[in-house]
Design a protein around this nucleic acid. Structure first.
Lengths: 136, 136
DNA sequence: CCGCATCCCTATAGATACTG
DNA sequence: CAGTATCTATAGGGATGCGG
C-alpha cells in the first residue's frame, strides 16, 4: 500500500488515496448499492482480483473513506459502507458521469440517473447523501 | 499504453483513460497554465519521470484530451494544450478540489480559486473554459 | 460458505542514463 | 529540449489455501 504524499497539491493528495484504476469503482459500487460484502465487489463487471480488492479496501478504510460493519444475518459476512468522507465524493462521481455522458455511450440506467441529476443537482446530492448515511 | 475497456460503466471507461496517478496532474497543469511544454510538466512538484510523461501525453493525445502545437518562438519546443474534451474535465477537477478542501490543507492560491468558485460555480467554469479554448 | 492471505507469474510503472 | 532505451521495482491477474 503506497502511502507517500507527492506534493501539497490537493489533486495530487486526492489521487494518492483513490487515484488508481480500482478505488473509484469500489466507491461507485457503494454509492449505488449503499452497502456491499467482499463478494459483492468481486461480482462487479470489471472483475477485480481478490488480492487487489483486499488491498484497496484496506487503503480506503485506512484513509477513512469506508468502514466495516458486522452483517446482521451472518457472522461470516462483513458489510462495507461509505463514511461521510466517502459519500462526499458523490459530486466528483457525478461530474465524471456527466463528462462520460458527453463522450461515451452510457448504459440506460445511468442515463436515467443523469436525468434526475440535471433536474436539480444540489437536491440529488443532498438526497443521495442522506440515503447513503442513514443506518440500516 | 493500456487501451482495453473493462466494462460499459462510464466511471470505468473514464478511469481507463485518465484514471492513474499522473494523467489528472498533467491536465491540472494545463488548466492552470493553459499551455505547457514537455519541460514544464517535468518541473511540476510531483516530479514525474520522463518516460511516464511521454506515455501519458501519448495516451491523452490519442484519446483526444490534449493536442500538440508548434511553439511560436522555437522550432525545438512543442506546446501541449487541452482540447474541448480535456477542458470539459474542469468540473471534475473543481469537485476534487472542493473535496480536498474539506479533508486536506490547501495551498493559499488554491483556496483563493475556491473562493471564486463558490461565488458562482457555473460562471467560473464558463469563463475558464472560454479562456482555455481561446487561441494564442 | 465467506473473507481474506499467499504464491506465482506477467505486465506495467517508474528511475536513471542517454540520444537526435 | 523533447523524447528513447534500459533496467528494476511494483502492480496486477489468477489460482489456491485456510481460518472463522
Amino acid at each position: 500500500m503506497d502511502t507517500k504524499k507527492r506534493s501539497d497539491c490537493p489533486i495530487s493528495s486526492s489521487l494518492d488515496i483513490w487515484g488508481d484504476k480500482w478505488s473509484l469503482l469500489i466507491i461507485r459500487d457503494l454509492m449505488f448499492a449503499k452497502q456491499c460484502t467482499y463478494g459483492d465487489f468481486l461480482k462487479s463487471d470489471e472483475k477485480i482480483a481478490t488480492n487487489i480488492l483486499a488491498s484497496r479496501l484496506l487503503m480506503l478504510e485506512t484513509n477513512g473513506l469506508i468502514s466495516k460493519q458486522d452483517h446482521p444475518e451472518s457472522k461470516a459476512k462483513v458489510l462495507y459502507k461509505l463514511t461521510q468522507k466517502g459519500v462526499d465524493l458523490l459530486p466528483v462521481m457525478i461530474e465524471i458521469n456527466i463528462w462520460a455522458d458527453k463522450y461515451f455511450t452510457l448504459p440506460l440506467e445511468r442515463k436515467a440517473m443523469l436525468v434526475e441529476v440535471k433536474k436539480d443537482k444540489e437536491a440529488f446530492i443532498r438526497n443521495q447523501t442522506a440515503a447513503l448515511l442513514k443506518n440500516g
